[in-house]
Design a binder for these strands. Structure first.
Lengths: 127, 127
DNA sequence: GCGCTTTTGACAATCATTATCAATAACGCG
DNA sequence: CGCGTTATTGATAATGATTGTCAAAAGCGC
C-alpha cells in the first residue's frame, strides 16, 4: 500500500494545475521552481506508479521520452500530437480498441495491451 | 543518392536470410560472426536509411529498442508482439489507417504518421 | 514515543542510439 | 586506368532519459 508522503502529494497537486503533457524532468523542474524539494528519482517513481494505477496518462515520443498528464477521461484513449510544438488532442475510437482485442484473441494472445500514437504538424505550426 | 558499398550489401543480404525482427545490435553481431566487418555505426545508419525508404519494417519495444525486419508486405501494417518471447504476427486493418488520417485532418494536422503496437503473451509462452 | 517498513534522493550505472571527424572507398570522366 | 570529388565508413566519445544503489529519513500502527 502506498503511503501518504509530502512528495507524492506535491506531484499530485502539480498535475492538477498544469495542462497538457510534461516529461518527468519538466515536472521535476517545476516542483523545484515552486519550492517543493523532491528528488528526480522520486518523481520518476511516483509517475510510474500513478501510470500503473491508471491514474495518469502516459505517452511516448519517438525520441523515447515519456510524457505524463492527469487523465481527463477515464476511458482508454489515444493522442494526436504535434511533432513541432507538442500540442495534443485526445481522441478515442472504440472500434480500434475492439479490433485490437479481437485480433489478439484470434491469435491466442492474452494479457493484451496496445499503444497508438498519431503524430502530425498542427495548424499553428504549419504556418 | 546512396552508393553501393560492401557494407550496405552485407546488411541487405543478411536481412534476406534471417527471419523475424532483430535489433541493430543483433544484426551487427551476426555480421561479425559471418566474417563481414561492418561497423556498428554503419549498421545503424543503413537500417535507418532503409526504414526511411520503406524497404524494411521498424518496430519499437517498450524498452525503447528498435527492431528491424525486411517487409513481407509492402502495405503499411502493424504488429502483434509477444511480450515474453518476441514472436510477432503481422496484422493490418485499413479502417484503422483511414480513421487515423481522418481524425488528424479533422483537427487540421498535416504530415501525419502513426504507430500502433499490440503487446500480449503468445499461446506458447502462456503455458 | 517505538519499532518496523516503506520511501526518499544524491549519485552512479545502464544502454541504445547519435555525433565526431579523419581515413577510406565509389563513381563519373577523360 | 588514374584522378578528383564527394559520400561513406567506423572507432570512439558523447548523449540523455531512465533505472539501480543503499544509507538516511519519514509513515503508520500501537
Amino acid at each position: 500500500m502506498p503511503r501518504n508522503t509530502r512528495q507524492r502529494a506535491a506531484v499530485n497537486a502539480l498535475l492538477g494545475e498544469v495542462a497538457g503533457f510534461h516529461s518527468a524532468q519538466e515536472l521535476h523542474a517545476m516542483l523545484r521552481d515552486r519550492g517543493a524539494r523532491v528528488g528526480l528519482t522520486t518523481v520518476y517513481r511516483t509517475l510510474q506508479g500513478m501510470a500503473d494505477a491508471g491514474e495518469i496518462d502516459v505517452m511516448r515520443l519517438p525520441s523515447g521520452e515519456h510524457r505524463y498528464r492527469r487523465c481527463s477521461k477515464s476511458q482508454h484513449h489515444h493522442h494526436l500530437v504535434c511533432r513541432s510544438c507538442g500540442a495534443t488532442v485526445e481522441v478515442e475510437e472504440p472500434a480500434v480498441e475492439a479490433w485490437a482485442d479481437a485480433v489478439a484473441r484470434q491469435h491466442g494472445y492474452t494479457d493484451v495491451h496496445h499503444t497508438l500514437e498519431i503524430l502530425g504538424v498542427c495548424p499553428a505550426c504549419a504556418a
